[in-house]
C-alpha cells in the first residue's frame, strides 16, 4: 500500500473519516506519521477552543480578583485557587465521574461525558484560571501614571477599561500568556489518559502514539514522531503569539518594545 493511499485512508481517521479499522500488523512509518498527525487535530481542537473561551473568562476572573467587592473577589479567588492548586490530571478524572453522576440528575449533562465536550470544559476552566492569575498580575503592574493620565483625559468606567486598562494588561501579560498557551496545548494530551473513553478509536496524537508503541513494542519511533509534531505546534504558537505581541506593542518606541521571550516552564 502506497503512502499516499495510507494518508487517504487514515488522514482523517481521528475524526472518524476513512478506514474503520486501525492497522493491526505490518506497521509502516507512513502509518505512524499519518495517524499520529491525524490525532493532532484533537489536540488543536481542544487547545484552540479552550484558549479562545478561556481568554474571556480569564479577563473576568482577573477583574473579579482585583475587585474591592467581596462578592466578586472571593468567587474569583476560589475559582483560581481550585484550578491552579490541583493537578489537571485529577481534575479530568473527577470531572468525568462528576458528569457521570450529574447525568442521572438531568439529561442536559448527557454530552458532557464525551471527551469532545467534557474534557473541553475542564481545559477551558483550567486555562481560564491560569490565565486569570496572569492577567491579575498584569493588572496590578499597570503603571499608575497610565491610569492617572486616562482619568485626566476624562476616561471613565467601561470606556477606560476597554481603551486603557485592558490593552495595557494584555501587553504586560502577553509573554506569560504565550507560555500558558503552549502549555495548554501540551496539556491536551492528557485527555484520553484520564477517564474520558475513546470512541470508535478516535483519539488524540498521544492516543495513537501509545497505540503504536504498545503494538510494535518499540517506543523509539512513535514518541519521537509525536515530539516532532508538538515542536512544530509549539513553534507555530510562538510565532502567532509573537505577531500579536508586535501588534500590542506597536505604539511604543522601538527600544521599549520587548521581544517575546518564551519560557514554557510550567506543567499541570
Amino acid at each position: 500500500m502506497s503512502c499516499w493511499q495510507t494518508v487517504q485512508d487514515y488522514g482523517l481517521r481521528a475524526i472518524g473519516i476513512g478506514e474503520r479499522l486501525l492497522p493491526r500488523d505490518d506497521f509502516t512509518l507512513c502509518q505512524q506519521f499519518t495517524l499520529i498527525g491525524s490525532g493532532m487535530m484533537w489536540n488543536i481542537y481542544f487547545g484552540l477552543l479552550a484558549l479562545l473561551a478561556g481568554f474571556f473568562l480569564a479577563t473576568a476572573l482577573a477583574v473579579g480578583k482585583s475587585s474591592r467587592h467581596r462578592l466578586l473577589r472571593k468567587p474569583a479567588e476560589w475559582f483560581i485557587f481550585v484550578f491552579r492548586g490541583s493537578p489537571l490530571f485529577i481534575q479530568f478524572f473527577f470531572a468525568y465521574f462528576l458528569f457521570l453522576s450529574l447525568k442521572g440528575v438531568s439529561p442536559f449533562f448527557d454530552a458532557f461525558t464525551s471527551a469532545w465536550l467534557g474534557a473541553l470544559v475542564v481545559l477551558f476552566f483550567n486555562t481560564a484560571a491560569y490565565s486569570g492569575e496572569i492577567f491579575y498580575g498584569a493588572l496590578l503592574s499597570i503603571p499608575r501614571g497610565d491610569l492617572e493620565a486616562a482619568d485626566a483625559y476624562g476616561f471613565t468606567g467601561w470606556n477606560k477599561f476597554r481603551k486603557i486598562t485592558w490593552p495595557t494588561m494584555l501587553r504586560l501579560a502577553w509573554p506569560a500568556y504565550t507560555n500558558e498557551a503552549i502549555f495548554l496545548f501540551h496539556a491536551t494530551t492528557l485527555v484520553f489518559f484520564s477517564g474520558f473513553p475513546a470512541r470508535q478509536q478516535r483519539g488524540d496524537a498521544l492516543y495513537y502514539a501509545s497505540y503504536f508503541a504498545d503494538k510494535t513494542f518499540n517506543p523509539f519511533i512513535p514518541y519521537p514522531i509525536l515530539a516532532m509534531y508538538f515542536i512544530l505546534l509549539t513553534l507555530t504558537v510562538v510565532s502567532v503569539f509573537g505577531l500579536i505581541n508586535k501588534r500590542l506593542n506597536r505604539h511604543l518606541p522601538t527600544e521599549r518594545r520587548r521581544p517575546l521571550r518564551i519560557r514554557p516552564n510550567l506543567l499541570r
Binding site: 498521544l206 501509545s210 508503541a213 509525536l226 515530539a227 508538538f230 506543567l267
Partner: peptide, 18 residues
C-alpha cells in the same frame, strides 16, 4: 529546549521503557 517543547506526558511514557 527539547524537554520544554514536548508534552511531558510523552516523556513519561517514553523514558521508562527507554
Amino acid at each position: 529546549a527539547i524537554v520544554r517543547g514536548v508534552p511531558d506526558i510523552a516523556f513519561f511514557l517514553f523514558f521508562v521503557i527507554a
